[in-house]
């Protein structure tokens, strides 16, 4: 009698909760999806239609002019994709191992100086040398000018990701490390064969963030890359867009002939071109966010 009562109560509240869940998540999804649809349709609208009628859910005066501008020289775009994929892959793989390893060490409760090192890393998020000195140092002493390493190395070790990763590592029971030690495993073996397999969701998260960071980074390319054949995709697109904006900005002050570019639809098309591939990768990352992934390993 008593038992069935709680059951009914439970299912009732569960049902109500489910309704709320679905509604809230659906609304949130709509709010996030609509602008994206507008963006895609904007990228296929003519510049004049956007100017006079604004944006809508469907393309106005359908045209592919903006994409044609981006893909004017298809080889450059393909090359830029290649560069982006290269730096994203290399940076993410090495960065991920580095971050996971470091996070593991600074979350070890028996490691005496973990707070000191945490602070040593954290401090760099508060202070930095400023653009000028960083630039000079990288160029003159590290010789990173026009080198792809300038796009990979500075972003490889992100302290924010390190500290988030630390919370994932901390969630792993200390007992596991101890039992591994008792089994005679060295620190490296403990880390690679015991800790890493348990870090899947954390690794998926941080790996995705690293990849997104590399994929979206145009700033380092702007500072350090000179030759156009080393432009990553985002910077290639960014420079296209900036050209229109910069010319408009200085037109008031300078005696420079200014030509017009389809800036509105171009902005939208750029976003589509740059986002596309990463959206395709997302589902692969998602499969690691499955509830209870740690179960087997903990038991084993």
């Amino acid at each position: 009698m008593k038992e069935s009562k709680t059951k009914i109560k439970g299912s009732k509240s569960t049902k109500a909760f489910n309704v709320i869940c679905y509604t809230v998540v659906s609304i949130a999804a709509m709010v996030c999806l609509l602008p994206f649809i507008i963006l895609v349709s904007g990228s296929f609208s003519s510049e004049q239609a956007i100017r006079f009628e604004g944006y809508g859910l469907l393309p106005k005066e359908f045209t592919t002019a903006a994409y044609e501008l981006i893909f004017k020289v298809p080889q450059t775009v393909i090359k830029a994709y290649g560069i982006s994929i290269f730096i994203t892959a290399v940076g993410t793989i090495f960065g991920l191992i580095l971050i996971a390893m470091t996070a593991y060490v600074i979350s070890r409760k028996d490691f005496k100086y973990r707070n000191v090192f945490s602070f040593f890393f954290y401090f760099t998020t508060l202070f930095n040398g400023g653009m000028v000195c960083t630039y000079i140092f990288y160029i003159q002493y590290l010789h990173l000018k026009d080198s792809l390493w300038a796009l990979i190395l500075p972003g490889m070790f992100n302290v924010f990701y390190l500290l988030i990763m630390r919370t994932f590592v901390s969630a792993i029971p200390t007992a596991l490390i101890e039992s591994a030690k008792i089994d005679g495993a060295g620190e490296f073996r403990t880390f690679f064969s015991v800790i890493l397999p348990l870090l899947k969701s954390g690794m998926a998260t941080i790996g995705m963030f690293l990849a997104l960071g590399y994929w979206n980074d145009w700033y380092n390319a702007m500072l350090y890359i000179n030759s156009e054949d080393k432009y990553p995709l985002q910077y290639m697109l960014y420079s296209l867009l900036q050209k229109a904006q910069a010319l408009a900005n200085i037109a008031g002050q300078a005696s420079i002939p200014v030509a017009d570019l389809p800036s509105n639809s171009l902005k939208m098309a750029m976003a589509v071109v740059a986002t596309g591939p990463i959206i395709l990768v997302y589902p692969f990352v998602q499969k690691y966010f499955v509830k209870g992934i740690t179960i087997g390993s903990v038991k084993g």
């Binding site: 090192f117 000028v132 390190l162």
Partner: peptide, 15 residues
């Protein structure tokens, strides 16, 4: 990690 942070973040900090 310490080496990377030292070179890429701490050294330029002198600026």
């Amino acid at each position: 990690a310490v080496v990377i942070v030292l070179i890429f973040m701490y050294l330029p900090m002198s600026g």
